[in-house]
Design a protein around this nucleic acid. Structure first.
Lengths: 115, 115
DNA sequence: TCGATACTGAACCACATGGCTCAGTATCAA
DNA sequence: TTGATACTGAGCCATGTGGTTCAGTATCGA
């Protein structure tokens, strides 16, 4: 089951690894926007912005619809729940790991006192 | 202030966008491991694995130390808190956005009933 | 109808990525 | 001392990325 989500995580984390794309997501959180709107705001050519939107769309984070000349972009169906869950699980692992290390250090200190 | 974290987010999300690297993190959550350990488990050459570890190290997610012939890898200082915070903020935006849309739909329905 | 607008696709560029091999170097163990 | 082990670095390859320009096509508005 975990494997089925691996590709989705690959795509969404890759999509999030670019500051422009993170910016686009935040911008779309405040309202839909056309490619031109986004290209203007992020000081980029239409073509360049369209590529970013394509990446976000492939990752399911954005959906677009073209009406007339204008392609309108809006937040997609994915709320990044899987990604959040992964990070939370990781944090848990991290905590456990460092707790274990703490325990080990305590052990060592105790042994040292008795040696 | 947000800008200062942008590069860190770039690096960590990029590091997380590869399934092997996510696997390495989980593996290290269960205990430290050498490059050879990791290369064996993920069926890859030492050189290949070393590159992955390098990416994780650059992102601050892993630290390594070489003792004798063996380089031991362990979880790094970063607990992915910034990344988690970003995703949570995004999810909030997402919720607000879709609540707003819901409101809009309600409005439209109401107007339609009265027309 | 005609100009302006909005996008689209192909093609190019420099550079990064994810893998590999191969040829080292350094260390351990017998 | 010598062989095995563990890594390291250079360099190759195919592919992807983040941007561009340029040449379209489609639509809108006067």
């Amino acid at each position: 089951m975990a494997q089925y989500q691996a590709a989705a995580l690959d795509a969404s984390f890759a999509a999030l690894s670019d500051p422009t794309r993170r910016g686009v997501l935040v911008r779309l959180g405040r309202g839909d926007a056309s490619i031109t709107d986004l290209a203007t705001r992020f000081e980029m050519t239409l073509t360049g912005m369209k590529k970013h939107v394509g990446v976000l769309e492939d990752a399911g984070l954005v959906t677009t619809e073209k009406v007339g000349r204008v392609r309108t972009c809006k937040l997609g169906p994915r709320r990044l729940d899987t990604e959040l869950a992964w990070l939370e699980r990781y944090r848990q692992l991290w905590d456990e790991r460092f707790d274990a290390l703490d325990g080990l250090v305590q052990d060592l200190k105790r042994k040292e006192q008795h040696s």
